[in-house]
Design a protein around this nucleic acid. Structure first.
Lengths: 131, 131, 131, 131
DNA sequence: GTGGTCTAGACCACT
DNA sequence: GTGGTCTAGACCACA
């Protein structure tokens, strides 16, 4: 499914969250798919079940998964729920941090603008082609 | 000089590092400027001196500051901080991820554009005031 | 007969219990009506028979159903299920807590009134259709 | 601070969440107050620190607390953040459950309406008197 | 001292 | 089998 980087400063559960999110957003995992059970993934990644569960819980909170106790954990359908303004605020905060980071590194505001335009461009291309 | 946000998940020392970097990048602090002593800043921010010291050490290590024993801590010349293209690539990747996530949550591209413009605007306001 | 919501945190057997209770309370199922056999309901809901059986057992225990070996399971007479004033008090306390929480989150009393009206409306629609 | 009921079906961490929420909503704990550290509360309640942390985390997610790593956990100011629609949806679900419960018990819709009116009345009295 | 993460291993209810 | 909760005890970074 994916691999962990033990050297990373990211915590293990955070890596799992990001990886699963990635698999869902890229369409490798689809709505209603069953994902590996806590114990199963725990074995394949040789990570403690509690750590896996923590990651799954976080993903559930963020709306990517849902759980049926006794049956397993499944991929949720995207935004069947009204847009989550709180979550948007959180992601916006991430973006703000990254932009600050670019400034620290020494990027000019113009260069940052260019980078952001590029990224937006990427997605609109993607949308035009993909859908 | 700047303010800390205790509610942020960022650690205090990290916030100090980022804020000082920002003051330097935006030209509010210039090469050879003397910055407040550990004790002084510790008082104005009501933060443990050890925390300030840790931040200064980190800034020194990253090449933004230098210390002259008995005289104080000073801002280094910017030339000593070359632009790190690799790091830019990494941050760009973060930005890409966040944008992907906003799309997945259900934000339209237009709304994302608006959010990014807002964030850029924040920074240029800052710069205008600062200079 | 009714539908299950797998995404709910309620366990499946609990949902079945609640749904059957509801069908009885709203008069869709009447005293002495025969309800589907464990196997039958198991198929229509695509749920493990053990789960259905557990739900039926619980309903029997609470006095809503009774079983005649070899014939099937039937709805009990409502008189056998006296109103539990103590329980009403408990649920009222839950409602009070939830309302308090909505106020704390920042809902106006008017908005809360609207929400409650909506919920009541849901039930009376249900009853009108059912009877 | 409060006591746990080990006989309750509610899990320990859930009881802690509810109790702390109650202390905040009734104004016994006020914004910016420091609450007992994880280890401290762990000792006074003779409960594992992990369990306390889980409760605090949940409260943070719901917006009642915020955390400064290395300093402690504090009571957040109410709704300095835009109204959390997701959370409202969750509480609404609780209300829906309670209303269903009343139906199961045998309350008529009219009686339920009366109960809800009573509860709303309580709060508007409270608001008139209190503020 | 504070919170944050992780492990190992146990018990429970539900499917 | 599944997830959910809890304990005991360890290590880390930060203040």
């Amino acid at each position: 499914m994916f691999q962990l980087d033990l050297k990373s400063r990211k915590s293990i559960y955070e890596q799992i969250v990001d990886n699963v999110k990635e698999l869902i957003m890229t369409g490798i995992l689809n709505a209603e798919d069953k994902i590996p059970s806590v114990r199963e993934l725990s074995k394949t990644l040789t990570v403690n079940p509690n750590t896996i569960q923590k990651a799954y819980r976080e993903l559930e909170y963020q709306g990517y998964l849902y759980t049926v106790s006794g049956l397993g954990t499944f991929v949720a359908s995207p935004s069947e729920v009204p847009i989550d303004e709180k979550r948007i605020g959180e992601v916006k905060e991430h973006l703000r941090e990254s932009i600050k980071e670019l400034l620290y590194i020494g990027c000019s505001l113009d260069r940052i603008r260019k980078i952001l335009d590029e990224l937006i461009e990427e997605r609109s291309d993607w949308n035009d082609k993909g859908k």
